[in-house]
Nucleic acid binder design. Structure first.
Length: 221
DNA sequence: GCGACAG
DNA sequence: ATCTTGTCGC
């Protein structure tokens, strides 16, 4: 897919914050999606003691969840992992993998938070704004926010709250298993995001999109 | 000041 | 994220 994203690699966390504060204004938290025929999953892995970053993207048909296409890209790691700035470390490689895609996904599920972020610009929102595609943040652990206890049955969820505002949802994606953290990435509402995440679930804790992207990203060259 | 902290 | 085997429980 054609990517006309102007990604800027900041030279300091101060600069990174400025970029985030600028991009957060462009995040759209309402549904602005077309008919969903394809859902994608993206993730990154590391090799050679973190010197190489490998991005993986997989596209599934929806709602069948059959694999349609997958692409990967490897680059030299350009940014360290700093909580709150994950996107600067993972997006460069992700953009390269996304460029190779022939199938344009209607929604991309990202490994990490969307607006459930200190400055409301987690990796899902950052990527969504850059490439102008609807995105959803699906994280495996809590970053910020508080929530009530989640019933143990698959499908139950509670809003994730930070500073008085709903920044996401904590979802029990499988009975008796740790919940996952779903948040708006870009061009989608929370209810709709939850519906599509649930639509990508089968018998595991993580949606098929992230499971497959995860597996691909951790395979060695 | 102290602790927490997506991947 | 990554290093790593078997094992308990639904």
């Amino acid at each position: 897919m054609k990517i006309n994203a102007n990604f800027l690699l900041p030279q300091s966390l101060e600069d990174a914050k400025i970029i985030q504060d600028e991009l957060r204004k462009k995040v759209i938290t309402e549904d602005q999606l077309e008919k969903v025929d394809y859902v994608a999953g993206v993730d990154v892995g590391f090799e050679d003691n973190y010197q190489l970053t490998k991005a993986a993207v997989i596209v599934l048909s929806f709602p069948e969840l059959k694999l349609v296409e997958s692409q990967t890209a490897v680059i030299s790691t350009t940014f360290p992992y700093v909580p709150g700035f994950l996107s600067f470390r993972e997006i460069p490689a992700l953009l390269k993998a996304l460029e190779k895609l022939k199938t344009i996904p209607n929604i991309i599920l990202c490994d990490g938070q969307g607006i459930a972020h200190p400055r409301r610009l987690g990796i899902a929102s950052h990527l969504g704004v850059l490439i102008d595609v609807p995105t959803i943040g699906v994280a495996k652990s809590l970053f910020i926010g508080k929530h009530e206890e989640i019933p143990l049955e698959k499908g139950s969820w509670k809003p994730l709250i930070d500073q008085g505002e709903v920044i996401g949802a904590v979802l029990r994606s499988r009975t008796n298993v740790k919940p996952i953290y779903v948040s708006i990435g870009h061009k989608i509402s929370l209810p709709t995001a939850l519906n599509y995440v649930m639509g990508c679930l089968t018998k595991y804790r993580l949606p098929e999109t992230t499971r497959l992207a995860d597996k691909l990203a951790s395979e060695k060259a």
